[in-house]
C-alpha cells in the first residue's frame, strides 16, 4: 500500500512554544479508509499534534501534506476547506440549541431568494435524522436541545456532522475518555462506520484497549517524540498496552500493587 498517497501526512514536524519543545521531528501518515491511532499519555504532545493537524497551530518546522501536496493552515476553517474535520473534546456543540440546528451550524441549507432567504428547516431536520440513523442513533426529536443528549449521543452528532459535510479526514480528540464502557463501544462503532465510508480517521486516545479494537495503524507518542509505529498485523494488544505504559514501568507498578 506504499504507492497510495496518504490523505494526510506529517514530515519531520516540530512545534515549540518559546523554550518549550512540544513536538520534535514527528512524522506520520494517515490513509483513506483506515483508522490511525495516536497513543500517548498526558503531556505526550497529543493536543499539540491535534492542533497542528486541525489548523489551530502552524508547525514551527516540517511539512504538512494533504493528498501529497504541501499545505499551510492558519485556521480551522482552512483545514475544513481541505476536508479535514476535527471533533474536539468539547464537541463544538451549543447545548441550548436543538440537534438539527447544531448539526447544520455554519453550513445551514437555505431556500427562497434574498431578502426572503430562510433556513430550509424541513430539509435540515430530515437530513439530520437520516444521518444520525445511519450512525445507528435513533434521535428522538431533532428539536430537542443538544444539552439533553447523553455524552455518547453528543459525540455521535459531532461525528455525523463532520462526516456529512464531506470530511475526508476525521480527527477525533479523545472521543471515549469521558464515556462509560457501553457508550465508548457505541462511539467505536461510529469510528468503524466512518472508516467504511472511506474516511481517513485519526483517533487520538490514551486508552490502548480502545485503540486496538478499531485501529489499523498505531503511533506511540511520548515526550513530544514519535516512539514507535505499528501496523495491526505487527502487534498484539498486550504489546500495545505494554509499549504504551512503558513496559517495565507497568510491571513494576503491577508488582507494587500486588504487594499492597
Amino acid at each position: 500500500m506504499t504507492d497510495v498517497t496518504p490523505a494526510l501526512q506529517l514530515v519531520d514536524v516540530s512545534k515549540s512554544f518559546g523554550s518549550v519543545i512540544a513536538l520534535r521531528n514527528v512524522s506520520m501518515h494517515v490513509d483513506n479508509g483506515s483508522v490511525t491511532c495516536v497513543l500517548g499519555d498526558n503531556g505526550a504532545g497529543k493536543s499539540t499534534l491535534i492542533k497542528i493537524l486541525s489548523g489551530v497551530h502552524e508547525p514551527s518546522e516540517g511539512q504538512l501534506l494533504v493528498n501529497g501536496a504541501p499545505k499551510r493552515f492558519t485556521s480551522p476553517r482552512d483545514a475544513l476547506e481541505d476536508g479535514i474535520a476535527t471533533v474536539f473534546q468539547d464537541l463544538a456543540t451549543v447545548p441550548l440549541m436543538s440537534v438539527w440546528r447544531n448539526f447544520f451550524l455554519g453550513n445551514e441549507p437555505t431556500e427562497w431568494p434574498w431578502p426572503f432567504r430562510r433556513l430550509n428547516a424541513k430539509k435540515a431536520k430530515s437530513i439530520c435524522k437520516a444521518e444520525l440513523l445511519d450512525m445507528g442513533i435513533d434521535i428522538r426529536d431533532p428539536e430537542q436541545p443538544v444539552g439533553t443528549l447523553s455524552g455518547g449521543e453528543r459525540q455521535a452528532v459531532a461525528i455525523a456532522r463532520a462526516v456529512h459535510f464531506g470530511a475526508n479526514v476525521l480527527i477525533l480528540d479523545e472521543p471515549t475518555s469521558a464515556l462509560g464502557v457501553k457508550q465508548s463501544g457505541v462511539v467505536l462503532k461510529y469510528i468503524l462506520q466512518a472508516k467504511e465510508r472511506g474516511v481517513a480517521v485519526v483517533f487520538i486516545t490514551h486508552n490502548p484497549h480502545h485503540a486496538y479494537l478499531v485501529g489499523d495503524r498505531f503511533y506511540l507518542l511520548n515526550r513530544g517524540q514519535m516512539m514507535a509505529e505499528y501496523t495491526r498485523s505487527e502487534v498484539s494488544r498486550d504489546e500495545l498496552v505494554k509499549a504504551m505504559a512503558g513496559g517495565a514501568e507497568l510491571e513494576a507498578l503491577a508488582h507494587e500493587l500486588e504487594n499492597l
Binding site: 480551522p76 475544513l80 468539547d90 456543540t93 440549541m97
Partner: peptide, 24 residues
C-alpha cells in the same frame, strides 16, 4: 427563528468557541 443569521445569533451567544469551530 428562520434564517441563517438567527442561527448564528443563538450560536455565538450559546457557545462562542463552538460557533467559531464550526465556521460561524
Amino acid at each position: 427563528t428562520r434564517t441563517k443569521f438567527g442561527n448564528w445569533i443563538f450560536a455565538v451567544g450559546g457557545d462562542k468557541n463552538a460557533a467559531r469551530n464550526t465556521g460561524v
